[in-house]
Nucleic acid binder design. Structure first.
Lengths: 133, 133
DNA sequence: CCGTATCCTTGCTGATACTG
DNA sequence: CAGTATCAGCAAGGATACGG
């Protein structure tokens, strides 16, 4: 990885060999804002830049552009430019992006099943005080 | 999330409602260093602080401590302190952390299947030049 | 409407040193 | 050994403002 092209995904912090075989996918799919964007595109279908911005609610146009560009380059979304006045640009999920659906479903299922355990573990940990010197 | 306790996982950037139902899990499982740590604990079993540090290779003790503390609080790993001289501390995956295994497997499968498409999409995008004004 | 340009702040990182 | 403390450096993210 880290070819000659402008690939600002994340420098991976120069991991030596491959301590974790899923790191590439994690950087690809779970970078900041990618899951909300993919989710919204999946829920509401093809939509415009401002719709995405408004639905996410807390993202700035700069960052949204960055993320969408990267996701377009990675083949997860498709950008369509309509040369009109005013200009119109629409984004939609690509087939490749759609292939992540089962993964997201697994994630949602785990969430449903085990997130309460996480909450319990947290209160448990907090009640127990310092973890030992 | 973001309760009263010291849980600086990520402030989630104050997302309004719930633009993406899997965001909590993403913050939990795919924060920086968590997947390498979980992977190493899964591969090599229970091990000590320095072993983890050496195997990851590029992490400082400070950050490793931060990450391990948070994962312990979230119930993903278990920390065992042996009061000896020299002191010995061992970390291992908890059952909750182990319940992530199928998720990781799904991730690895997707990686195997679709990562080449990502690479292709990237070269394609880079060859095609500017994305249109 | 769809972005880009500019600044600013945050948080990770890195190096070093120091306890128990 | 297993951390904690401190400080400097950098890059990503956020806020604001402006242009095509």
């Amino acid at each position: 990885m880290a070819s000659t092209a402008p690939s600002p995904a994340r420098p991976a912090a120069k991991v030596p060999a491959e301590p974790c075989p899923i790191s590439p996918v994690v950087d690809l799919v779970f970078s900041r804002w990618t899951t909300p964007i993919l989710w919204l595109l999946h829920e509401h279908g093809r939509q415009r830049f401002v719709e995405l911005q408004r639905r996410i609610g807390t993202i700035t146009p700069k960052v949204l552009t960055q993320r969408l560009r990267q996701m377009e380059r990675d083949g997860l979304v498709v950008r369509t430019y309509h040369p009109e006045v005013p200009p119109r640009v629409e984004y939609e999920i690509s087939p490749l992006g759609l292939s992540l659906a089962p993964l997201f479903r697994t994630l949602a299922e785990w969430s449903q099943t085990h997130l309460p355990e996480v909450a319990a573990a947290r209160t448990d940990y907090d009640d127990r005080g310092q973890p030992m010197p």
